[in-house]
């Protein structure tokens, strides 16, 4: 059963005196419960695609449906985790996680119990009354994950969520995410530019090309979890993906030298 259907999606941006084609004829069919990583250098449109699935921006052409419904606006059926955490700094951890439930109109005691359960699941029970400013980056991202899990959405969208974290924190959050995914059976679309992260996490890795963003390669990762980054299979795949990504990175740099872009 497919959960996310991306059909001939184009995204064009007008820039002064020019037009950037960020996405060109993207077609993806993501199954329910699948863990998909979108991989590519910056400027390949992976975040643009994720934002389109989230409903923050609309494709210029084509359509996206999630759970059979066309995406028209952001909604709690597609919980998003941002790289910058985006926690509300004026709310305690508990209130942050509770926010989505309050918006939904969930009864107070039910919401409280649910929040406690989520905080427990993410190892945050002790931090309920803290404000985000008093937490480390890794803890903040745990809160952000708890906050979208509270929505109970079938789809999780993650935009380089661990990009700002140190290697050890990153690995522990990756493991945590895999555990949650195995337990709750969410469909996850995860944007990253880390090849290793993509191989460690994904069922399927979609490599995007640098402008215009197209699907360069769609690879299924069959290795059993937990995956060993030192294993020969891991490294064969890593070499393959490195080649694909660095081709695109070189196109990006060439474009930069030609003065076509600044990012």
């Amino acid at each position: 059963m497919s959960d996310i259907l991306i059909n001939h999606v184009y995204k064009r941006f007008a820039v002064p005196g020019n037009e950037v084609v960020a996405l060109k004829d993207i077609n993806l069919d993501i199954a329910s419960g699948e863990f998909v990583c979108l991989l590519g250098p910056s400027g390949c449109g992976k975040s643009t695609l994720l934002n389109a699935i989230a409903g923050f921006s609309h494709p210029t052409e084509g359509s996206i449906t999630v759970g059979g419904r066309p995406v028209v606006e952001p909604g709690p059926d597609r919980g998003m985790v941002f790289q910058e955490y985006a926690l509300f700094p004026w709310m305690t951890v508990f209130k942050n996680v509770r926010f989505g439930l309050e918006v939904k109109g969930v009864a107070n005691d039910v919401a409280d119990a649910r929040v406690r359960e989520l905080l427990d699941m993410l190892g945050l029970s002790e931090f309920g009354e803290r404000f985000p400013k008093d937490l480390s980056g890794g803890m903040r991202q745990r809160v952000a994950i708890a906050r979208v899990l509270a929505l109970d959405s079938p789809v999780l969208l993650m935009d380089e969520p661990f990009g700002a974290l140190d290697a050890l924190t990153r690995r522990s959050l990756q493991d945590e995410l895999l555990k949650i995914w195995a337990r709750l059976g969410k469909t996850i679309v995860f944007v990253t530019h880390s090849i290793e992260e993509a191989i460690y996490l994904a069922d399927r890795i979609v490599v995007l090309t640098y402008r215009p963003g197209t699907v360069k390669r769609d690879i299924r990762v069959e290795m059993p979890r937990p995956r060993d980054a030192a294993s020969p299979e891991f490294n064969t795949l890593k070499r393959e993906l490195s080649r694909l990504v660095s081709e695109e990175q070189q196109r990006h740099e060439a474009a930069e030298r030609a003065g076509l872009t600044t990012d």
């Binding site: 923050f56 909604g75 509300f88 709310m91 926010f99 989505g100 979208v148 929505l151």
Partner: peptide, 27 residues
């Protein structure tokens, strides 16, 4: 803008966003 995006993603409507996001963020 990231707070507004997060709030919309969490299902908040314009009134809730104004009262619970914009107002406290502006305090």
């Amino acid at each position: 803008g990231i707070y507004l995006r997060a709030a919309r993603n969490l299902g908040a409507g314009p009134l809730t966003i104004f009262r619970r996001v914009m107002l406290p963020a502006a305090t």
